[in-house]
Amino acid sequence: MALDRWIALVFVTFCCAYGYLAFATMDQLLPPFMQRNPVWPSTFPKVLAILGVIVGLVVLFGLEKPDSQSEPSATDINYRRLHEYKLGQALMLLGLMALYALSLRPMGFLLSTTVFLMAGSAILGERRWVIMFAVSAVAAGSVWYLVQQVLGIFLRPLPFFLGG
């Protein structure tokens, strides 16, 4: 079985477990006044689980591929040639995401997001440091402003030792 079908099988299994949780466990704890609502807190997870199972089954059964294609195209993932893909970059980005999540509280949103965006673009090959810093700082500041000021959700902007 091809790599995309194995991934689809894992995805369908995850969606089934997620759907079980959405259908069987989320609605039991609703207070009586919410049980008469047409939309419950579990409605969106139920829709996501059903759509995920449908999409996963389409990939698992190969319904998205045309029948006339006998050999894999250049865009298909060939698990026999995984060493030719840029797995190092992908793994470094995953590690960077984990470090970003761990650094949000101690470093503050603005500093950790700016460093994350700069490091991520450096991993992907960007070498113009001035542009990387400018874009990262503007993006982090814009997101912080929208979340903090517009939505009213508190994000610690600065590191804890600077009073953020």
Rank of each mutant, 00 (worst) to 15 (best):
G88E: 12
Q89A: 13
A90F: 12
L91F: 14
M92R: 11
L93T: 10
L93F: 04
L94G: 11
L94D: 05
L94K: 02
G95Y: 06
G95I: 05
M97D: 04
A98E: 04
A98Q: 05
A98Y: 10
A98I: 15
L99D: 01
L99Y: 05
Y100G: 04
Y100D: 03
A101D: 01
A101N: 02
L102V: 10
L102K: 03
S103H: 02
S103F: 11
L104M: 15
L104Q: 07
R105M: 09
R105L: 12
R105V: 14
R105G: 05
R105S: 10
P106G: 11
P106Y: 09
M107D: 03
G108T: 10
F109T: 07
F109R: 06
F109Y: 15
F109K: 08
F109L: 06
L110I: 14
L111Q: 04
S112Y: 01
T113R: 04
T114K: 04
T114W: 08
V115A: 15
V115C: 13
F116I: 05
F116G: 08
F116Y: 15
L117E: 00
L117M: 12
L117C: 03
M118V: 15
A119R: 00
G120W: 03
G120C: 07
G120K: 02
G120Y: 03
G120I: 05
G120N: 06
S121E: 05
A122V: 11
I123Q: 10
I123R: 10
I123F: 12
I123P: 10
I123W: 09
L124H: 04
L124T: 06
L124F: 06
L124G: 05
G125T: 03
G125V: 01
E126W: 13
R127M: 08
R127E: 09
R127I: 09
R127N: 08
R128G: 04
W129Y: 14
W129V: 14
W129P: 07
W129M: 13
V130L: 14
I131W: 12
I131A: 11
F133Q: 00
F133S: 08
F133R: 00
F133M: 11
F133H: 00
F133P: 02
A134C: 06
V135T: 13
V135D: 00
V135L: 13
S136D: 07
S136I: 10
A137G: 04
A137L: 15
V138P: 03
A139I: 15
A139C: 14
A139V: 15
A139N: 02
A140H: 05
A140I: 09
S142R: 01
S142F: 11
V143K: 00
V143N: 02
V143A: 12
W144L: 09
Y145Q: 00
L146K: 00
L146D: 00
L146G: 13
V147N: 03
Q148A: 13
Q148H: 14
Q148E: 14
Q149R: 11
Q149V: 14
Q149E: 14
Q149S: 13
Q149A: 13
V150I: 13
L151S: 06
L151D: 03
L151Q: 05
G152C: 09
I153H: 01
F154T: 10
F154K: 05
F154V: 08
F154H: 12
F154C: 00
L155N: 07
L155W: 02
R156K: 14
P157F: 08
P157T: 09
P157R: 12
